[in-house]
Design a protein around this nucleic acid. Structure first.
Lengths: 340, 340
DNA sequence: CGAAAAAGCCAAAGCGCTTTGGAAGACTCT
DNA sequence: AGAGTCTTCCAAAGCGCTTTGGCTTTTTCG
């Protein structure tokens, strides 16, 4: 059942039927009702391909997925996706993932924009002066950054959590508990969230006249194994920290294992606070010693990103609004006063 | 730059240019070269919306993403996606995720098929007589099932791993080591993989005249917490098992924690084998005691699914071919002879 | 050499929708 | 009552591609 048939059946023109369906004003309410009714009754659904060709709108949002045999997708992605889906589902928004060579995403961005394949895109895990952000903002397609990119002289819309504030709070707590030597096991330090977290820790330490030794900050891909290795290295050194801030729950698994392997205990010998993105399958309260965390649901962020993207597509949201969510500090058993 | 312009520029008709570009035979090789060349030089890319409208082909593969506030996306999904992306990237295949209410995916399947939004779909985590498999095969769109669905009287194309064989091998090893009481901590028992794994364990036990007690098989959502709970329950019972087969690495984290909490050891008091889908961020060899696993890369499966889907779209692959991959049993420190 | 077949190209008709530019009729207002 | 204004609808022109059917020209072959 296409528009032509429906129009013929109603003895109306395609124009009128189309307008009635799309809520244009120049059609009699009575007529509109008739049309709406008939459309529903016959299960008429406009052909999206045709609509796309005519309008250039696709009803989909895009994400360029960096891939490559040496590239691993962030496990957080799936939670983010859950949130995105929660919103998108109720708005018949689809998400198209365009896999791209991680080293050349530009080609793909240009392609999906030139082809009008999607109405908007989002960018995640931005780095300093992230080239994707610069590119997309010149391309003139609605977009939203999940996270932030620094170093630009222009503004752009984003949604981020207060990573600096979160790690500032975490470090401040540890300092208050008497810890003098803190360590930070961080993610890839090219990513903004890692920069912000380090900044937060440094600021908290500085407030008490302490500093974060270069040897006490690790920047690694966030795997269990890297958490383990970093911790071994930290704790086996002569100036071993007494407290660790860690950027992910997965790395924290490795931290805990390393501490145990060394015959030490949490929080007796070392206090630990990790960031929790809220996974359904791994919870900080279930660690062998319940883990203190800075908590922020990445899933909720996903839903919000979808919502704002939809708003930008429809023109409801404009401009370069940045939105920063506060992060909860949840104290559990993994922190204690510094050992004597 | 559209076809019309390109054709005009070459003093040819749109027909000829289109045919030259799409490899149709009725065009002079010399002409084809000229066209190809000009197209490349001017960076001409056919507008996919227009092509879609004309051909009905979209160049995308689809996946209906079950969502809902109480629905969590499987963390394995992201690895599968990596593999899918690895292949898709080099073939300019995009993936469209259509979020759907987990309890009503049919509507969404019908929509994406009716709208010709995608050229093929894949289905994952199928259950017994999975309604999606039945639906999609009547809808007449190329598809592939990742996993298997049982109980149908028709065949369909799928890619699965030998879950039964894997867990049969695992259980057989444990039995050979003298274990008499095995337990299985499994995933949701409505899913085929869980059914197959249980079958594998039972078969191995039966071969030695043993049985799998109903109290020794747990069917739970695969989270760390559920692994922990199941293990506590199992080991605190009077007929505690001496060996556990576990369906996921994430649950195995919980198993290990529970065993430790009870003051027991692996493999001294209980042997453990888990299935490993090969995550980059959590490796069995890095468990406190290296974990024996049945291993199969879900990422490779993702790539293969994309490859076969592409083959089906282009008509290279036809019929209901089922493909079953063998699974490696990797023995590490977590298994030992049964305690006396 | 001439008929039949093949090769190479084109005009035009879709694909199914949106949107422009009217046009006819109904209403208002002086 | 006539001019001007709304209201309501329509025909037709795109959007940019593929594909059908046909028309020339060249090649093949008895």
């Amino acid at each position: 059942m296409n528009l032509k048939q429906l129009a013929h059946m109603l003895a109306l023109s395609q124009t009128t039927v189309s307008r009635a369906l799309n809520g244009y004003p120049e059609v009699n309410e009575e007529t509109r009702r008739r049309v709406m009714d008939a459309a529903k009754r016959h299960g008429y659904r406009p052909n999206p391909s045709a609509r796309r060709l005519a309008t250039g709108k696709s009803g989909m949002i895009g994400y360029v997925l960096p891939t490559g045999t040496a590239v691993d997708i962030d496990p957080h992605f799936v939670e983010f996706l859950s949130g995105l889906g929660d919103y998108a589902r109720s708005h018949e928004l689809d998400l198209v993932l365009s896999p791209a060579d991680a080293d050349d995403q530009e080609t793909t961005y240009r392609r999906i924009v030139a082809n009008r394949q999607v109405d908007a895109v989002y960018i995640s895990s931005p780095r300093r002066e992230d080239s994707r952000v610069a590119l997309v903002s010149t391309l003139g397609i609605p977009f939203l950054v999940h996270g932030r990119s620094e170093g630009f002289d222009f503004d752009y819309p984003y949604l981020d959590i207060d990573n600096e504030g979160a790690f500032h709070e975490a470090a401040r707590l540890l300092v208050q508990l008497g810890h003098q030597r803190l360590a930070l096991i961080n993610g890839d330090d090219r990513e903004t969230f890692a920069i912000h977290r380090e900044r937060g820790v440094r600021r908290a330490l500085a407030a008490s006249g302490l500093t974060l030794s270069e040897r006490h900050v690790c920047s690694v891909v966030m795997t269990e194994e890297n958490g383990y290795r970093a911790t071994r290295r930290l704790l086996e050194a002569s100036d071993a920290p007494t407290a660790i801030a860690c950027s992910s729950l997965i790395m924290a698994l490795g931290v805990v294992r390393a501490v145990r392997d060394l015959g030490l205990t949490i929080p007796g010998d070392v206090s630990l606070i990790a960031h929790d993105d809220v996974f359904p399958w791994l919870k900080p309260e279930n660690f062998s010693v319940p883990l203190s965390t800075t908590r922020s649901s990445i899933r909720l962020a996903g839903a919000r990103v979808a919502e704002r993207l939809a708003a930008r597509i429809s023109g409801v949201e404009e401009g370069a609004r940045g939105e920063v969510w506060p992060v909860d500090l949840v104290v559990r058993g993994s922190v204690a006063g510094a050992p004597a």
